[in-house]
Amino acid sequence: MSVDPEKFQRMIQSQKFLDGIPHMGALGVQLVNFEVGKVTVRLPYRPEIVGNPDTGVIAGGAISALLDNVCGSSVVARVARPNAFATLDLRIDYMKPAVPERDVFAFAECYKVTRLIAFVRGYAYQDSSDEPIANATATFMFTGKGMLAQAKGL
């Protein structure tokens, strides 16, 4: 694997990393904060991702996709190497609906990594991280082959 570690470090801390994931591009997800093992992103409100047209509330599925992705990003932020990995398991608890017309933020922390598995917890919120709209718990498995698409050409 001929990836320049410094270039990889820079790339994962930039919007480029999210932009390299087509579904995140489709959702318009923006990087807010990146530190070792911890990532925060923002999902801009848009009418196309509304699940309940009666209320204008964003679909749970879009929040799930956001949380799945930020959880994965936190693994990259912790291991800082381009090895590909796959989601094994993702649990999401929805505490309250997102307020319409407002962006949703998602934070995740990769708190433990073993040789094969990464353990992550995260949550989604709007105004304050003290009042999450959803909680996530995820595990990921390093697949041992291939590398992250974004690492290609670095």
Partner: peptide, 24 residues
């Protein structure tokens, strides 16, 4: 659709889209 992809190398669907499909 191409917008459902999570990993362009494999390529593979974004896990979040599969979660959304299952929930729906």
């Amino acid at each position: 659709a191409d917008t459902l992809i999570g990993n362009t190398t494999l390529p593979a669907l974004h896990g979040g889209t599969i979660a959304a499909l299952l929930e729906l």
